[in-house]
Lab assay of single mutants.
Amino acid sequence: RLIESLSQMLSMGFSDEGGWLTRLLQTKNYDIGAALDTIQ
Rank of each mutant, 00 (worst) to 15 (best):
S7Y: 13
L36R: 03
S5K: 09
G33K: 14
T38G: 06
D37A: 15
L6W: 05
L21S: 00
Q40E: 10
Q8I: 15
L10V: 09
L25H: 00
E4G: 07
I3E: 15
I32K: 04
R23Y: 08
A34R: 08
D31H: 07
M12Y: 07
D16H: 06
L21V: 05
W20E: 03
T38K: 07
K28P: 02
F14G: 04
L10G: 03
G19L: 08
R1P: 10
G18L: 08
Q8W: 10
Q40V: 12
S5M: 11
L24M: 05
E4R: 11
K28W: 12
G18Q: 08
L10K: 10
G19I: 01
D31T: 05
L21N: 00
S11I: 11
G33T: 13
T22R: 10
L2P: 04
G18K: 06
G33F: 13
W20T: 02
D16L: 02
R1H: 10
D16F: 05
L6Y: 03
D16K: 03
S11E: 12
T27E: 15
G19W: 06
R23K: 12
S11V: 10
M9S: 00
F14I: 05
G19A: 05
E17K: 07
M12P: 01
L6I: 07
D31L: 08
I32P: 03
F14K: 01
M12K: 07
L6R: 03
G18H: 09
E17N: 09
D37I: 14
L36E: 01
M12D: 01
S11G: 11
G19N: 06
I32D: 01
L10S: 06
S7M: 14
R1I: 10
R23L: 10
Q40S: 12
Q8A: 13
R1Y: 10
W20N: 01
G13N: 04
I32Q: 03
D16I: 06
Q26I: 15
F14P: 02
M12R: 07
G19C: 12
L36N: 02
D31Q: 05
G33N: 14
M9F: 07
Q40A: 12
M9P: 00
S7T: 14
Q8G: 05
L24A: 01
M9E: 01
T27Q: 15
S7Q: 13
A35G: 02
Q40R: 15
Q40H: 13
I3R: 14
M9Y: 03
Q40K: 14
S5R: 06
G33R: 10
L2K: 05
L21H: 01
L6P: 00
L2R: 05
I39F: 05
N29A: 11
G19T: 03
S5E: 04
S15I: 10
K28A: 11
S15F: 08
L24T: 00
D16T: 03
M12V: 03
M9Q: 00
L25K: 01
T38S: 15
A34E: 09
L25P: 00
I3D: 12
Q40W: 12
D37N: 11
E4Y: 09
G18Y: 08
L36W: 08
G33W: 15
M9A: 05
T22W: 09
W20M: 03
E4K: 11
G13R: 01
L36H: 02
T38Y: 15
M12G: 02
N29P: 04
L36I: 10
R23W: 08
N29Q: 08
T38A: 15
A35S: 07
T27W: 15
R23S: 07
L21R: 00
L36T: 03
S7P: 01
F14L: 06
W20Y: 07
R23C: 12
I39P: 02
W20G: 01
T22K: 04
L10P: 00
T27C: 15
R1D: 10
S11T: 10
I32T: 05
L36F: 07
D31Y: 06
G33L: 14
S5W: 13
L10N: 05
D16G: 02
G33V: 14
G19V: 02
G13E: 04
S7A: 14
D37Q: 15
F14Y: 13
M9I: 05
D16P: 02
S15N: 14
D31R: 02
L6F: 05
I39V: 05
N29R: 08
R1F: 10
Q40I: 13
L10H: 06
I32F: 07
S5I: 13
Q26R: 14
I3L: 14
Q26A: 10
W20R: 04
Q8E: 11
G33I: 14
S11Q: 13
L21F: 06
M9K: 01
E17P: 07
L6N: 00
G33S: 14
T22S: 11
F14A: 02
M12I: 05
E4T: 10
S11Y: 06
T27N: 13
G19Q: 06
A35Q: 03
L10T: 07
I32N: 03
I3T: 11
I39L: 12
L21P: 00
K28L: 15
T27D: 14
I39K: 03
Q8D: 06
M9W: 06
I3F: 14
Q8Y: 13
Y30W: 10
T38M: 13
G18A: 08
L2D: 06
L2V: 06
M12L: 09
Q26P: 00
R1L: 12
G33M: 14
A35I: 11
K28E: 06
S15G: 08
